[in-house]
Design a protein around this nucleic acid. Structure first.
Lengths: 194, 194
DNA sequence: CCTACCGATCGGTAGG
DNA sequence: CCTACCGATCGGTAGG
């Protein structure tokens, strides 16, 4: 029960093994948080001792930052692809929200749990996380800028509210009454004003 | 710089000292999280060694649960008091949101940081936190039930979105451009549909 | 990838 | 409230 037995007798073991370890680490970080996941935990799932992981990674900090940034890269490109076919501002926002929610609420999501972890992480790590997240949020800044909103709504607040909504959805998404797509529709319908 | 020097030469030192320790612990938990705060950290701020705290508390777990529940008690009663003078459903919701946001965004807030900590905490603690929070959320369940919302809006989703909004506000409330009251007004204006 | 270990830190306790 | 300690666990390393 302790080893992942992906038959990996293939040649390019070096990087394949590394990817496998990253995958395991991502799941553990997502489930237990940064401080709640020890290198020994990761090693156990990978079938090696904690110390052995340091042949593949430089440090726990660097591992976490790498996973976090890769998750945001993937999310960002999915969203950009999803909004491309749409022209109408509300349609663009809706597809972006649905895509992000799909990622956050996926049963094995590895993005979300890392985005609210900022207080659990060493200062040096947090700085890198914040920098990458700011870039990610630029996509939404531009989507919100294009909306025909009533003048009394502050767009900066609006964007922050929308994003914190999407990012924290998994906190209360226990009951599977509605699908991620339906949740996204509800969110947009609440945030929709003109 | 290490000791709190509240002159406490008074008689009822026993419970006064305990309250002082609770206050210190609450601030540290709020700033650094459950796992990021050690008993030795708390002791240092209180001017004693970590082990000495166990004359006043039973365990770190029990301390955290006590602080969490006391914070929710206080928040709940503030909110109930704030909505009492209002009759109109939107006015009641607005005053509840403004009150909760005031608490969450207060410079030394001790409520908020504990509400999203659920993954950082031992299982036995989490169960107690969740139970208390469910009761707290009942207030908002009833406020939302009274709203004249369009039929296409799911009230359970609506309430969860609103609450996660209020609870995570401090995550992005860095720039002090707007006051908590103005933020609350923005939130309600976005969530307002009829 | 393992053995064997380092120094640090943790929550908590006994005994005064 | 302190001294002095417990067993456990942490991230990380040397040397093979």
């Amino acid at each position: 029960m302790k080893k992942h037995d992906l038959a990996s007798g293939s040649n390019d073991e070096g990087s394949g093994r590394r990817r496998q370890i990253l995958e395991i680490a991502a799941q553990l970080f997502a489930k237990k948080g940064y401080r709640g996941t020890s290198m020994r935990d990761i090693g156990e799932q990978a079938g090696v001792l904690g110390g052995s992981l340091y042949h593949h990674i430089k440090s726990k900090d660097a591992l976490f930052v790498e996973l976090h940034n890769a998750a945001l890269d993937a999310a960002e490109s999915s969203i950009l692809q999803a909004i491309r076919p749409h022209d109408e501002p509300w349609a663009r926002l809706t597809s972006a929200c649905a895509t992000l929610l799909d990622i956050q609420l996926a049963p094995d999501s590895r993005t979300m749990p890392m985005m609210n972890d900022f207080r659990e992480v060493p200062d040096a790590v947090r700085e890198q996380l914040v920098a990458r997240r700011d870039r990610f949020e630029g996509v939404f800044r531009s989507l919100v800028a294009d909306l025909p909103l009533p003048p009394h709504i502050d767009r900066s607040i609006y964007r922050n509210l929308l994003l914190s909504q999407l990012n924290s959805a998994s906190d209360w998404y226990r009951a599977r009454r509605l699908s991620p797509g339906q949740i996204a529709a509800q969110i947009v319908s609440i945030f929709r004003h003109e």
